[in-house]
Nucleic acid binder design. Sequence first.
RNA 1: GCCGAAGUGGCGGAACUGGCAGACGCGCACGACUCAAAAUCGUGUUCCUUCGGGAGUGUGGGUUCGAUUCCCACCUUCGGCACCA
Length: 826
Amino acid sequence: MTPQYDPATIEPKWQKRWETDGLYNADVDPSRPKHYALTMLPYPSGDLHIGHWYAMTPSDARARYMRMKGYNVMFPMGFDAFGLPAEGAAIKRNIHPKEWTYANIERMRVQLRSMGAMFDWRREAISSDPKYYKWTEWFFIQLFKHGLAYRALAAVDFCPSCNTTLAREQVWGEDRHCERCGTPVVKKHLEQWFFRITDYADELLDFSSLDWPERVKTLQTNWIGRSEGASVVFHTEDGDPMEIFTTRPDTLWGATFMVLAPEHPLVDKVTSDEYREQVEAYKLQASRQSDIEREAVDKEKTGVFTGGYAINPVNKARIPIWIADYVLMTYGTGAIMAVPAHDQRDFEFARKYDLEIIPVIQPEGEPDLDGATMEEAYIGPGVMVNSGPFNGTRVTDAKGRKNPGIAAVIDWLEEQGIGREDVNYRLHDWLISRQRYWGAPIPMIYCQECGWNPVPEDELPVLLPDDVEWRPTGESPLKFHPTWKHTTCPECGKPAERETDTMDTFMCSSWYHLRYLSPDYDQGPFDPKEYDYWMPVDTYTGGIEHATMHLIYTRFFHKAGRDMGIMKGPEPMIQLRNQGMVLGEDSEKMSKSRGNVVAPDELVKRYGADTVRAYLMFFARWDQGGPWDSKGIGGPARWLKRVWALFHETAGEQPAPEGDTAAVERRLRRKVHQTLRSVTRDFEEFQFNTIVSSLMELLNEMQKAREQGAVGTAAWKEALELYLLMLAPVTPHIAEELWAEALGKPYSIHNQSWPQVDEEATREDEIVLIVQVNGKVRDRVTVPADVSEADAKAAALAAEGAQRFMDGQQPRKVIYVPGRLVNIVV
RNA sequence: GCCGAAGUGGCGGAACUGGCAGACGCGCACGACUCAAAAUCGUGUUCCUUCGGGAGUGUGGGUUCGAUUCCCACCUUCGGCACCA
């Protein structure tokens, strides 16, 4: 053992040994409890950055802790290897996306190994491997066969920079930009493939079996955006039905006009000749405006009258039909009933265009509302008025059927056959078509006669051709391949064409946790034996940015798979924890263009992986992250050097023959076991920063105990052993080295059990009681731990500081908190 | 506008169940070692102070013997959604 801590020597040595021994191989073993620890897989961009380390090494420490707790832990790793950057690189540098991707994977595997994580590399899965994407395609076919994948013409978001359509989840922010490249998206009308995720909207709102952060649950709940209400069918004067959705069926009697989205299919039909010109002009203007302009909230509402009229089915009132761009074709039915008295948007519109306002909800104890004089819509509770059979019915603030007014009206609508209880979601079906090359082909064939049919399953995978030209045209490069798309119809055998779009890569990552189970299995997407043992994922870690993308998709995928008889159980990932983000030293997001990127490889070279791991766990709360501080890493670096030095200098020493060490030993054992208790708790709660600080604190105490002659005693030996066991998940290399070289213990520390807290040892003999006078600390007294209340109070009252501040007065009240303090109130 | 999270020393952060605010680390200051520096070790480090003490966890109130912790109102920052009918 060298006197100098030299991570550059010991780290590669142990990494090699662990790997050749298969120390972290996880195999099905029904005799042991399993723990599937999963951390989000990286995209093979070419370099592992500090964010990967921040996500993965604390997750690794937690997985190692669970392993020491006796679980059979699987902690796999792989690559989300399809995707756009590969094509970008291909175009820019004239290198094949496959070559680029696999070269990056090679490089990143080496970098990943340098972390010293307990990855079971036998389970590595790469989503761009044919043996992987064969089953991505297979899943598509199963979804198609079960009616969960369909093709439809829709106005979809298209990124002009990435040259592909995007899912709604991939369009972000007020300016509706592409999640990947930041370019504002445009609308295109295209036929695309969708998954029916909306069929699962309600189930996705049920988080009861999940231990997930509230934040993620809230984000998903808002994203799904469930509204309860009713669908009601109005008719035009000509008898054409127009369905509307409303959350306020109790206000139906106050509907004084209707508004259609400019793109609504009935607009042309209801428009009278007299108004056709202005309607056409308005439609043209609306179509020219971007979504951003149209959806700007503060914009004044505009619209035009169509000349047509509808009949309100509840009271047969004849009401005008308008078109306005504040009604969106993408939500509900693209048509609304307008109740200006009780909806602020309708109110503003009615005032502007001088439309009738009829109050139908009267707030109790207030003067009667008057449509002519109201200054804003009334949206609070009250009693229904001007509402025929419902006059006098109470309306509360509650939504849906919980509101007596709404419940009564819904029942009546259903009786009358006018409408029905209904629910609407903000969530849209998942658009998965991408006009790009480097993705899993959509395994569908179009035949002029038979329509769309899936590729027969025994012909899977549909392989990507290698010889393509990547022209970023907005259409799939596969389309321009001379032969690839030409095939025959699986139904009739006549010439037919393949779908040339590829799948959203979120499709690949929706099931990667299943491919890890058996990455080489060829009878199905996964080996059922592995599935039955390992699933569900027990602990999933990753960034919050996937809350409304990957984390919704994978839940949908699992539930759909369950309904198709492929998967089991309600949810794929039971416990979720999010790490924060490591920012640059300038507190900005790290990026090459800002020049604030921290390169982990250099840090490993300079300090060693253990120090980098420890610093990442220590420098911030894991769930919050924060700016990198290059000076701060010196703390953990010094700490590990001091750990090394202490073990090196004292490991073999025997106790000094003379001197009574009983008190020192007791103090040391107390601190060791108190530390073990808090480290154990912190591992359970993912509080990695306090794990490291507790271990630093214990080292300081051990240093003191050393000076007091503890070295070589039984308590000292126990302290050294427990110290390394607690260190093992955090800094696995130095722990292994000291375990072998300083303590001479048999390989491997990573096969040891997590130690038990000796509660007896943690007990204090004496405690320091705080003495307060009127809530202010005035003194402290040392008393036996099992002091009686009377003795404690007496000691406090006698304390010099207490006497001084009591100023001769009699205590009015003396409060005793056992083990903590005495507060004297005068 | 709606929903959510968070505000603690110069900095990152700690504080279990309402009970010593500032653990641990960075930085800084001083000291030791050194010809000197780095490294290392030691001591100190919330602010004010007449050295008795006083103030202090975004602001203002409340509950309590006692509040970073619970309640009310507000301010700020960050994140999400946003004409969603």
